[in-house]
Structures are given as C-alpha cells and as structure tokens.
Design a protein around this nucleic acid. Structure first.
Lengths: 193, 193
DNA sequence: GTCTATATCGCGATAGAC
DNA sequence: GTCTATCGCGATATAGAC
C-alpha cells in the first residue's frame, strides 16, 4: 500500500464520497471508508479529525482563494464593494468545482451532522473575511457586519446559481448585490415605536 | 425523584450548565449530567437527542418570538425594513435572557462542537425568517437574501451589545441597520472587470 | 432499562521512502 | 539509518437498538 500520505488522503476522500452517496452518511462507518481506501480505521483518523471532515477537504482552497481575492482589491475601494469585486475572482474556482459540489450537496443536505459542519465552515470563512477587511483598515465592528452581509449575499448568489438553470455565476453575484442595494435603499430612517 | 418531565428537564439543563462551566464540554460526560440531575443517563437522552442540545433549549422561544414578530409587522412594509422593525420586538426577550446568555457564551465559545450547533441553530432561524417573509408575498429568492442579510445585521447588533459596554440593544439594532444602509449605498453600479 | 455499535484517540511496533 | 506513515491493539463515551 502507498506510503504517500497525499495519495491515501485522496483515496479516503473518494471512498467516503462513494460510500456516503450509496449508503448515506449514517449508513457508512469510518471502518468501511478506511477499508475501501485500503488502510485501517486508525489511519483514517490520522488524516481527518472526525468522520465528517473528509467531505470538506476542498473547502481549504476556497478559503485561501477568497482571502487572496480580498487582499488583491485596491485599498481605496469601499468595503462592501471590495467584497463584491473579490467574489468575482472566486467565481472560477467555484465553476471548476461545480461537478464535485453537485455530488456533495445532496449528501450534505441529507445528513444533519454534515449540514452543521457546513454551517461551521461558512462561519469560519466569515471570520476570515472579517480579518481580511480589518487588514484594509476597516474597524472591527464594521468589518464584522460587512463580512456577514457580504457572505450572505455571496452564498445567496451561489445557491441561485447552483440550484437554478444554466446561469452565469458572475451575473448571479451582480444580481444579488444589486438586490441588496435595492433592499437597503428602502430602509426607513426613523426609529419604530 | 420528581415525575414531572419539565422539572427533570430543567434540572438537566442546570446540571449541564454547571458541569460544562466547571469542567468544559469535553470534560463532562452525559452520565455526570444525568447523575447530578438525579436521573439515569437513559433519561437524559429521552429529554435531549444528544449531548449538545441541552444547552440550546432556550432557543426555542427565540424562534417563536422572532417569527411572531415578523408576522405582526403590517403587510405594506418593505421586507428588510419589516425585519428591522420585527427585531425590535425580539429585544425584550434577549434582554430578559441576557444573564443566561452570558453564562452560556463562554462555554459555547470554548467547544467547537457547541459552536457548530449554534451555527446550525442560526441557520435554522434564517430559514424560518425566510419562510415568514415568503408568507408576506416576497418571492423566495429575495426572501432568502433578505433573511440572510437581516439576520446578519441582527446578530452583529446582538454581538456588539453583548460584548460592548452597557448599551441599549434597540440602539445597536438601529445602528447596525444604519451601517448597512451606508455600506450598501456606496456599492458601485458598474460590473468590475 | 439493558445492551451494543461505532466514533474517537493513546501508545508502541513496524515498514516504506529518502 | 532516519523519517514518518501506517498498523495493531485497546480504551472510553455517545447514541441508538432491543
């Protein structure tokens, strides 16, 4: 069996994807995943801290690319607009991973435990986005608001793109930000009783 | 021991709060929680589906109050402004629970498993808010965006209120929505290259 | 209520890769 | 030979089945 960790890791990911798709998350044991990848259960846990994480290895790249995209936006751009522009730079990665995402989505949807992990990943990404904004000299409070709102808009665009018919993700991003602008513009100024 | 399920439930919640605070989430077993509440471990699992859920029983009320608040806003109000106004109606509940929230927060922060559960609860609430907006005849796509953005703003206000010095939560809500309006107003119209 | 499956992790031994 | 990935065994606690 291969001694190269990266190969074993990839085989574990593929094995988990197959088994989860076939028997569901709860219907699959870590032992089965390890066996299909040709290693022992103990080895599985040296690569992934728990049973869920094997499905989220690809998120790593998303985080790196997103942070890098924000950092590449010129300093003068207003924070929310900076996110808007940065998200366009993330689009190619998502387009490239669309096939894999389509395989993962139904698996994750079907298992509450996996949905929890996904939400945690999203929250972690929001934190990273906030940090990236703070580095742009946005104060921490505004950065948090901006990161949450911006990521909310982005996720909505992604969802529309992934579930809808063949649209362009760039267009969905612009559309979602335009929707936000419209919604926010109609906010009342007066404090309600 | 009391036969009344609600009493046992409350004692389990209190026991868990105490033990988690003292030994941390990972350092506490469900057996210990049950023992301190004067019941068997089996009884614990009849009240709560897993070890984490005992800390989130109070979220139930938040969901009900939030949905009711949205439903009570007049039909003509624009969706995001409707959320803004509805959130003010949720404030009293949060103020009343502030003490408990202050005890729970550090426990949840310290345990990744609990943070995951909290994010899942937030996501579930966003779904409920979206549903409530759909009932106001907002189309599903806009409702999702509005729910995500609105809840993002609201959580930010709550965070500012909970972590900052003695401010009024109403003011934080208004402030966060005002910040959103400012940010969104500066969004560029043109599509970036 | 009891019993059991299985996720998770510690430890020492082993065996490819360089 | 030195690493480091993997193995083999064992222990514990959650969670669900009977």
């Amino acid at each position: 069996m291969p001694r190269d960790g990266r190969i074993v890791r990839g085989r574990l990911e593929q094995a988990a994807l197959d088994l989860f798709a076939e028997h569901g998350f709860d219907g699959t044991t870590t032992e089965q995943i390890a066996a299909r990848a040709g290693v022992t259960e103990r080895t599985y846990f040296r690569h992934f801290p728990d049973k869920r994480e094997v499905l989220f290895a690809s998120e790593e790249e998303l985080r790196e690319v997103t942070v890098a995209a924000i950092e590449s936006i010129p300093a003068g751009v207003e924070p929310l607009e900076a996110l808007h522009q940065a998200f366009h730079d993330v689009v190619p990665l998502l387009v490239r991973n669309r096939q894999l995402a389509a395989l993962r989505a139904p698996i994750i949807m079907a298992a509450p435990a996996l949905r929890e992990r996904e939400h945690a990943k999203t929250a972690a990404l929001i934190d990273l986005v906030q940090e990236a904004l703070v580095k742009r000299n946005i104060d921490e409070r505004s950065a948090l608001l901006c990161a949450r709102v911006g990521m909310g808009v982005f996720s909505t665009a992604i969802r529309r793109w992934a579930t809808g018919s063949a649209t362009d993700l760039h267009d969905e991003v612009d559309g979602a930000f335009a929707d936000l602008a419209t919604m926010a513009a109609s906010l009342d100024e007066r404090r309600p009783a």
